[in-house]
Design a protein around this nucleic acid. Structure first.
Lengths: 359, 359
DNA sequence: CCCCAGAGGTCCACATGAATGTCCCCGCAT
DNA sequence: ATGCGGGGACATTCATGTGGACCTCTGGGG
């Protein structure tokens, strides 16, 4: 064993402000002043001594004590149905980054989509004294009223309708869906189905309404509606049912990329082709949609902007100004699944520019 | 607006132990005893009064004060390269659940795969006084030595080689890869390529060694090695390069499902078929592999068990007993991409039992 | 020209925040 | 009389920031 002269911070016991003060020959208050540009000024000489002591000891203020005194944990909580779902994973990551940029850490919790779990998670977060909560999960009335009575602010993220008493952030669910359907109509489709995830909420999903509107505007009758879970398997099964139906639609609008991926599998298994036999347009704009086969045309949600808006709404909320519902516009990304871009295989067959992933 | 007579906890100020004590007519110490089966016994009558006061006020002990006194935040930290990567998302979720089962919350941090970020995140977690850290990210020596000098225990999760001074949890990277290659050999392939993610670490990835061994055991020469990022795009590009090569291999072993998905796209774009033109076997066993087209044969990691082992290793670590590297066995899931299961489309063409997703 | 008062500028002691658990005390029962 | 079950007061955990204390430098008056 060589005696290594490195890092003096081979500290066994926890280093506190007091240790720093002692080493620097000042009082503990001065250390605080230096650490956080304190309310009082410190002479440059003293400040230097303190900073030196801090790095020599490897001192880091105890977050617990800080939180206790300040009444703020500098942590935010987020409840999502499932971090494994790429859309929520992306959303959570964006939120994490936006929060980190403002000095907050993010405590992530999965609710599994159950209201009971969600409530438990919110309670847990509350008892951990987070400074605020993002709710991207099922939203039941009881949860909301409960939250309303707790002192901790919440913003509904990924929620596109007004909820009195809560700031919320969402996207143009209806308009995006309507445009997607409109686009499919533009391709000449006249029988357009809907694969819709089941919302535990009681109100109609705006995507469904958008689909209806898109059809109505084109003077088309409503195609079949297939309801299923918001996951790959749900989409897969819905796809199987869809393809088995007597009057098979020529196009389908799917409420999420994840479901569309499952549906794609069902189509492939049936020996059919997208978009020739069935055109597909989905919702979310996740990375997975870009690498499915064929690549999915999808309604892109501006996840990053939404996350930033949510963090802002949560942190800057003063508690008195009227709450609002920020709705972000969506974009349509056109790939091969709706019939816009030629399925790349064709392009590759005749050598030419490979149709790379949309940027 | 109806006046709802619910929850008496319309408390504006924070409710502390003191309020409970006052309402219950006892001292604050007794409240503590009741809350955490305290070190002292409390008579059933008193306990009932306290519990009543607690629920009447909606009291929840302040986590910060608790953490301060106890010296434990009852939080664990986890650093992963990217929560958006399904494998890490799944791992993180499993860890979150295992931790929650033991009363710990999980603070998740993305490093983006950079060592600098990882170090920053670890520092951040350390200053938040987490009780331990899971490291599933890049692992540089400096980070490790730095951690060694901090008082906070860490376990290397998703790390399959011994690192002195650290508990670690991994899988049979080498053996799993070797078996996958062996399997491809069994299908008659004699030119098997490797698509390998780039590890920021300096040592050879065991998957690469497993691939080599598998080939060596079969007396086959090494096929081409394509190195790329650990994501869909990396796999996509590697696939393009692979297919463009003069002596095109008939099979490929890919270091992750994510990359394989990208590769699959490249194959489809080239108008080729899997497994007929190129058999694919990948690594991880993520959900995405099941819904790609064709479904991917993959080496499944027992994520849940790994997460539980990691949590156990972190929480139960006494700091003195020798550290160890727990290696979990892997399973091969055989689907269509390697040529085992008929590509479902064929089965569907001739009506029969649809080949559902492997369970 | 010298001295003293007042004005800053620095820094310190200490109360505070919420919860834990030790030590001590009281009263009842044996 | 004495032990013990129940319950209370208080020191402790660490960081924050207010209310001074102290020292220095300056400006004005004697």
């Amino acid at each position: 064993m060589v005696t290594v002269p490195h890092s003096p911070a081979s500290a066994r016991p926890t280093i506190t402000r007091k240790d720093v003060a002692r080493l620097a020959g000042v009082s503990t208050a001065v250390v605080s002043y230096v650490v956080n540009g304190g309310p009082k000024r410190v002479s440059p000489v003293t400040a230097a001594k303190v900073r030196e002591a801090i790095s020599a000891l490897g001192y880091r203020p105890n977050a617990a004590a800080r939180a206790l005194k300040l009444g703020s944990s500098e942590m935010l909580g987020m409840v999502v149905p499932d971090t494994t779902n790429p859309f929520f994973a992306t959303l959570a990551r964006a939120v994490e980054e936006a929060a980190a940029a403002r000095g907050y850490a993010l405590l992530l919790a999965n609710s599994g989509g159950s209201a009971a779990n969600e409530r438990r998670q919110v309670r847990n977060l509350a008892s951990r004294r987070v400074d605020g909560v993002f709710l991207s999960s099922v939203l039941f009335e009881p949860d909301l009223t409960e939250l309303e009575h707790s002192e901790i602010p919440a913003v509904l993220l990924n929620h596109s309708s007004e909820v009195p008493g809560f700031n919320s952030v969402g996207v143009e669910l209806l308009e995006g869906s309507r445009r997607a359907v409109e686009h499919l109509v533009g391709h000449g489709h006249r029988n357009i189905a809907l694969v819709m995830g089941m919302n535990s909420g009681n109100d109609l999903d705006a995507r469904e309404v958008g689909w209806q509107q898109g059809l109505a505007e084109a003077g088309l009758p409503e195609g079949p509606i297939l309801r299923c879970d918001f996951d790959r398997q749900g989409g897969y099964r819905a796809g199987q049912r869809l393809l088995a139906s007597a009057d098979r639609p020529t196009a389908v609008f799917v409420s999420s990329d994840l479901q569309a991926v499952g549906l794609l599998r069902a189509v492939s298994e049936a020996g059919l082709r997208v978009p020739e036999d069935l055109a597909v347009f989905s919702f979310d704009g996740s990375a997975e949609a870009e690498y499915s086969w064929p690549p999915l045309s999808t309604v892109v949600q501006p996840v990053q902007a939404m996350a930033e808006a949510a963090v802002e709404a949560l942190i800057d909320f003063d508690g008195v100004s009227p709450t609002r519902n920020r709705i972000f516009p969506v974009d349509l990304v056109l790939r091969a699944s709706c019939g816009c871009v030629p399925v790349p295989a064709a392009a590759a067959a005749a050598p030419g520019l490979p149709a790379g992933p949309a940027s």
